[in-house]
Structures are given as structure tokens and as C-alpha cells.
Amino acid sequence: MQAHSVYKIPQGKLLKISLEYDEKNNVIMTIRIAGDFFAYPEEAIEAMEKKIRGTVLEQKHLLEKIQAIISEDHIQFIGVDAEGLTQGILMCKP
């Protein structure tokens, strides 16, 4: 199933998530993380989009996965954070 969300991070930027997920297993198939935020290095966001594939669409799993990627790839976010990303992704679910 295709889904989208637009989420204004509190004190931050506007996050726009596009998601394709497997409804039966509640698993992310593809994701695009867009918006007017800042991330360093920028290219890490594309790697993150790949690494998130296969993650269960559930708060705890998703937050842990995103935090792990941020730490592995030494990503610095400005205007968005792991919690905000998680929230934006979960908002794609009806």
C-alpha cells in the first residue's frame, strides 16, 4: 500500500514521507524521506532510505532502527530528529 504524510516537526522543519508498505506483515517496502530539513552528510539520507526497508511499522522498532542508522552513519540532523522521523513515518498509516 502507498501512503504519504506531511509532518511539521515541533520547533523544526516540514517532513514529507512517502511510503510503500506490506499491509499484511506491517513492514516498510520502500520509503522516501523528503522535506526542508538539513542532514549531514546529505547522501546519508539515501542510505537511510535503503536501510529502513524491511523495518516493522511500529513505534519502538522504527525508532530503534533510525537511531541505529544515525549512529552507524554519523548523521547530524538539523530541524528533524529520530523521534520526528518515526512520528512522520507512523503518520502514513491510516
Partner: peptide, 30 residues
């Protein structure tokens, strides 16, 4: 911005009509 979707953010046809170019930056932001 680097992370934005061009087609989500910009009305490309109106840009073409008004002669406005569109470019993606290597920097984030809006």
C-alpha cells in the same frame, strides 16, 4: 533543497510558462 521532491514543491508548467528555471541545491533547506 537537497531533500525536497521537485514535483512536490514546484509547479513546473507554470515555471516553464514564466521562464523560471528550477534547480536542486546540494544544500538542504526549503
Amino acid at each position: 533543497g537537497y531533500f525536497q521532491s521537485l514535483t512536490d514543491e514546484v509547479d513546473i508548467l507554470t515555471c516553464e510558462r514564466l521562464g523560471v528555471d528550477c534547480v536542486r541545491r546540494i544544500t538542504g533547506g526549503g
